[in-house]
Every structure is written in structure tokens, then in C-alpha cells.
Amino acid sequence: MAWLRGTRLAVLSGVLVVAAAAGSAAAAKKDGPGLFAVRQVPAAAPTAEPVPVAAPAPKTLPVMDYWDSPRGFPRDPDPMSTRAVTEGLRPRHRLAVYDTPGGKPRAFLGRSISGMPVTVPIVERRQGWAGVLLPSVNRRVGWVPPGGWETRRLGDQLFVDLSERRLTWLRDGREHGSWEVAVGSRRTPTPQGRTYVMGRTITSGSVYGGLDALVLGAVPDDRDALAASLRDGHTAIHGWRDRSAFGRSISNGCVRMPLKAQQALLDGIPEGSVVHVVE
């Protein structure tokens, strides 16, 4: 990745500067020859915005699962963002997810999906509501009202650079590992944008080295480009025994990892961690 070359970490610090307009209530008062004292004016108390009320969710709403894409949710407003996402949302019970704060409920999100505990990354907060990346659909955000969930700290990020065929792992902003990998082919590309680790699942076949795969929230952008047996699957990060694949764009959309690297990810990456797929 071009942004990782040279320095490993760039930190930008922001400074907020507040200036008083001439003639305002905070104007300077002359205190002597060439001397001025600033008259302090108490800041107006901020007006708290009311929390949008969550409309009752019909019991007939679909429940988000592994196989079907949830419908009616808005696009991720910043899908190519590479900023760190540090909070995940863990449901305490089944939650209704809305298309906007105070908007229309579109689906339920349960505590687990196909046996994987649910932790979805919080990418935005607005008026007490949490905007989260959704499972089984690409580059979509849903909104969850206050209550019925808890937050979990997220300290890890995975960056998949499609042009360099490289996966880089950051932990708390510092590089924790970087490996040459295989990514999707031109016909079956790895979906771009930010997604997240849903959990892990077993694999079948010696080529995977006997290691579990990390299942991502992303699904194929073009299901019809895949064999029928793969169309309902998810993008994953998994081990690959044949090292000749690394550095190439040849997979069905998954990211193929060296076996030792895959084991390191399995040992260290929790569910909810954001994966940034960039080019």
C-alpha cells in the first residue's frame, strides 16, 4: 500500500481555534496603554437534540442470516474510509435495525448468525443511535436505537490491497504483520470497501491446511460469475497450502493466506474487526 510505505504510521492532530468577532459581546476591553483584557462571556448551553423514537418493528420482519442479503438499507456513506473503527455493537437480544434514526425498521439482527456470535462495527453515531456495518450485504449501513446492546472495543484493522496483493494487520494503529496473498480474479473480484470479520468456520480440503477460515460480512458482488455451489457463500480469509498462488489475482473472491499467517490471524483477530479492501 502506498500509504504504508516509508513511515509506518502517520498521526494527524487537530487544533480547534475559536476567534471572537469584532464588536461581539466578547470584545476586548481597554485596560491601560497598549493593554487589553478579554471579557469572558459564558458559552450558551448546547441544545440537546431529541433522540428519534424507534417505531415498533413488525414481528414479520426478516431476520438477518448467512444466506440472504438484507434489503432496504442505505449505502455506506464512506465505504473506502481507512479510519480506525474502535467500537463494535453486541446485541443482548434480537434487535430491530432501521434504515435511518427514527426511520423504518427493515430487519432483525440476532445474537448469532450460523453459530457465530454477532459483533457489528459501529461506523457512525447519531442522536443516540448507532450506525453499523451489516452482514451478508456489501457496503450497507443499518441503524440501531439505544438499548438492548453493549459495546466492545475493537483494536484491530485488516487492510487488503488488491493492486499489491498484500494483507496488512494493524493493531492499535501499529503494523502487526504483513503478507503477500492471493485475491480475487478479474471475473470474480474481492469486493471492495469496508467490511468486517463475522467469525470463523471450518474448512474442508487439504489445500486449506486444516485451518479455519475467517468469514467476512461481504458477499460476491456478482453471484452469477461464480459456480452455482459458491453463489450463496461469503468472502473469507483462509489459509492456502500452494504458495505459488500468492501475489496473484486468481481466487473466487476470497483472500488466500500463507498457513502461518492464517494461524496468526485466527489467534488474534476477534469478530467485529473491520477489513478494508482497497486498490
Rank of each mutant, 00 (worst) to 15 (best):
E124H: 07
W67M: 06
R83W: 01
V137N: 10
L134N: 01
D68A: 14
T86K: 03
L89D: 04
R106T: 00
G128K: 08
S114P: 00
V132Q: 02
P105R: 09
V141G: 08
T119E: 11
G142C: 07
R140I: 01
G72V: 10
P91M: 02
P117L: 08
M116I: 08
L133K: 07
V144S: 03
V141N: 07
T119R: 15
L109W: 08
N138S: 10
G142I: 03
F73M: 10
K104Q: 15
L89H: 04
D76S: 02
G88T: 08
H93S: 08
G142K: 04
V97L: 08
A130I: 07
G110F: 08
L95Y: 00
W129Y: 04
P74G: 12
P74D: 14
E87Y: 07
R75T: 14
M116H: 03
L61K: 07
R126G: 01
G128S: 04
G115Q: 09
V85S: 00
D76F: 07
W67K: 07
R126P: 00
L61A: 09
S114M: 05
V132T: 08
R83S: 03
W143S: 04
T86G: 00
S81G: 13
L95R: 03
E87D: 11
P74C: 12
P105L: 06
R111Y: 01
H93C: 00
G128T: 07
P91I: 02
V85H: 01
W67L: 13
M116W: 08
R106A: 00
A107G: 06
R111H: 02
V63D: 08
L134K: 02
W143M: 06
T100E: 15
R92L: 15
F73H: 10
E124A: 15
V63N: 06
R140M: 02
I113K: 05
G102R: 12
N138F: 06
G110L: 06
E87S: 13
D99F: 12
R75H: 12
G103H: 03
S136N: 15
L133H: 09
L133E: 09
R90M: 10
S81Q: 03
R126N: 13
L61W: 03
L134E: 01
F73N: 03
S69T: 15
E124D: 12
G88F: 04
S114L: 11
V97S: 04
V63G: 03
G88P: 06
W129H: 05
D65K: 07
P74A: 14
G131A: 11
G102W: 12
D76N: 13
D99P: 11
S69K: 14
A96G: 12
A107E: 02
R125L: 14
P74F: 11
P79D: 05
G115N: 10
L134G: 03
M80D: 14
W143E: 04
P101Q: 11
E87I: 00
L134V: 05
V97D: 04
L89A: 06
G115C: 12
M64N: 04
R111I: 12
R92S: 13
L133F: 12
L95D: 02
D76T: 06
R126F: 11
L89S: 07
S114Y: 09
R75K: 15
P117T: 08
V144R: 05
P101R: 09
D99S: 14
A130L: 09
E124N: 10
